[in-house]
Design a protein around this nucleic acid. Structure first.
Lengths: 194, 194
DNA sequence: TCGACTATTGGCAAAGTGTCAACAGACGAC
DNA sequence: GTCGTCTGTTGACACTTTGCCAATAGTCGA
């Protein structure tokens, strides 16, 4: 019954394995999913998993890496709007993205450090930093390290608010947008007492 | 060289194992630490680990559970201060706690869902909810589900801001306090447009 | 059609996990 | 002081899983 062995381009095969792994990891924890299952789900031999990813954890990290990134879709040019309006639209754009791609994003978002041994933390941090850069750009603000640190710390807030809104229904979307918009403005503009 | 087998009260033994495990998990990821190592670090036989915790993951979850909770130390009575001042002092109290017990708290905080299969997520959520309740109490605000949902979503923000401040040094403590105080006030009081 | 390249497989050896019957401190009864 | 019971603790066993590697077989160009 062995379906004739198929030969794919390495990249395609990698994607195929990662995709199969993702669907398994959403409903079962890391150490309950064996490489045998991973291989079966992807329809390949077990050995191939190690061939492509090295170790089992590397598969997991790759799944995270690919799930965690915000979609790169373009935000329309906001450069001639006043800052508060730019903030509002930026937040709205993020919420929109969360609504569409949200599940994987939220599912992956919280998972960090202890597991994955700092590597996972690094992946999450990179994604948050990336999001901060995008946001600063959308707001038309300069990308200096200090401002970016501020905005970076907002990424986990976005995720937790989206979780309250989408998964628990304890906040409405409008309310989430209001709160986040004000917070973005606060973090982006507040002068600190020296 | 077998140190004569010692016999401890189950609770003491559990604590001993959890403590030993914690020190291992801070610098090595979950699946790189074997139960043999756990046992060796705690100075017990491998079988005892399963006897007390059932499975390897249960040890890990117990480590998280015990690391993640905010300290229960008392916040002085703030009931006759104006709300903004109460917020300022509450935030300050949390930052103080973060400074003291912070490392374990921050290390454990981010770790969530995919690993641990929802159980870990539930543990983190419980801790965040608990923190939200404490905060509402300190602010002297009513503990209704909606307000609590708002404050609960702030917990990850506190953690990420503390990380920027303590681990990266990108924010000063005063700045962190300022931003968080304003955000708490915002989330605690803002009326949403209906 | 042939040959080289390499994606893919299956099986092996080492390591890890959970279980269990047997062992041995601790404590009360006498 | 000695015996007997209770139960915390151990070491070994059976099973699963992981990473590795030599052999296999698609695929493409000559």
């Amino acid at each position: 019954m062995t379906a004739t062995r198929s030969r794919l381009a390495p990249e395609a095969r990698r994607r195929q394995i990662v995709d199969a792994a993702r669907t398994l990891y959403v409903e079962r924890p890391y150490d309950e999913v064996s490489t045998a299952e991973l291989a079966a789900a992807a329809g390949v031999a077990r050995g191939l998993i190690n061939h492509y990813f090295g170790s089992k954890r590397d598969v997991f990290l790759e799944v995270m890496r690919s799930s965690i990134r915000m979609p790169e879709s373009e935000l329309p040019d906001l450069s001639d709007l006043p800052l508060p309006e730019r903030a509002r639209r930026t937040v709205d754009w993020i919420l929109e993205a969360a609504e569409t791609y949200g599940h994987a994003w939220l599912a992956a978002s919280g998972a960090a450090d202890l597991h994955g041994g700092g590597e996972l933390q690094a992946i999450v941090d990179e994604a948050d930093d990336h999001a901060a850069r995008l946001t600063l750009d959308a707001l038309g603000l300069p990308d200096d390290p200090h401002l970016r640190a501020r905005l970076r710390s907002l990424a986990p807030l976005f995720k937790s608010v989206c979780r309250e809104w989408q998964q628990r229904g304890t906040l409405t979307r409008a309310e989430a947008a209001d709160l986040l918009t004000d917070t973005v403005l606060l973090f982006a503009t507040k002068e600190t007492t020296r």
